[in-house]
Design a protein around this nucleic acid. Sequence first.
DNA 1: CTTGACCTTCACATTAATGGCAAGGTTTAC
DNA 2: GTAAACCTTGCCATTAATGTGAAGGTCAAG
Lengths: 124, 124
Amino acid sequence: MKIGDLAAKTGVAPRLLRYYEEVGILHPYRSGNGYRAYGEPAVERVLQIRELLESGFTTDMIREILPCLDDPRPAECVVKVDLDALRRQLGNVERRIDVLQRNRDAIKTYLQIWEETSGVTSDS
Amino acid sequence: MKIGDLAAKTGVAPRLLRYYEEVGILHPYRSGNGYRAYGEPAVERVLQIRELLESGFTTDMIREILPCLDDPRPAECVVKVDLDALRRQLGNVERRIDVLQRNRDAIKTYLQIWEETSGVTSDS
DNA sequence: CTTGACCTTCACATTAATGGCAAGGTTTAC
DNA sequence: GTAAACCTTGCCATTAATGTGAAGGTCAAG
């Protein structure tokens, strides 16, 4: 699959797919002509990357979070996984979940109060 | 409380506190000499802002999320709260929680597998 | 074999959040 | 009253993620 196809399937601009490769979180093959060649799992992976970026993670953190989950990386990479970094990121993720849950509850409460006093139901 | 005091209490640089005012998510008073004057609740608010920024929210989103929770804003602002925006942001927060929970679980599982195979316990 | 659509790399622009500095006013302490 | 420490505004720099365009190679269709 060429970069344009992957862009179409994921909704992520080719420019960004090249960027993700540059920062080391996407690892396409190359076909003879020099074109990047992506496997089917790249679709899932790109979506994963987008989710994490939109959740405020940097590409550096993502590089630690997506260690051996590389599409075409077989067992060799297993050696290079930084377990401590991964544990750190796990802590990060958990802290963020706490923050978001607190804020979710706060917003919900706030909305409920408002919807009661103004007599507006939540379905628009 | 002057900007330096707030910076000391929150660990957030004065430069940023001014920035947060500029983008409309912090609203200090002004004392006669032109100095910004913050109330005690500003401490909590700044920490809240930091949490949300670190969770990947933009100042634009935060402006919608922290509506009437303004430190010194009494009931007048009640009129200006954008409930629809708030509901959108609630959806945002909930989506992010889902993403993070999925990733937390994935990382946890991954770590468990690794800690089993390598015989390493999780306490360092 | 030429045209158009794709790909390559390279480079510069932009936006948001942040850091830093400079020139000048204020307050505190000696 | 003078110096140090703080405040003000204004501007310019940086970083990460992203947009965009140029100059050129590849490929499929006519």
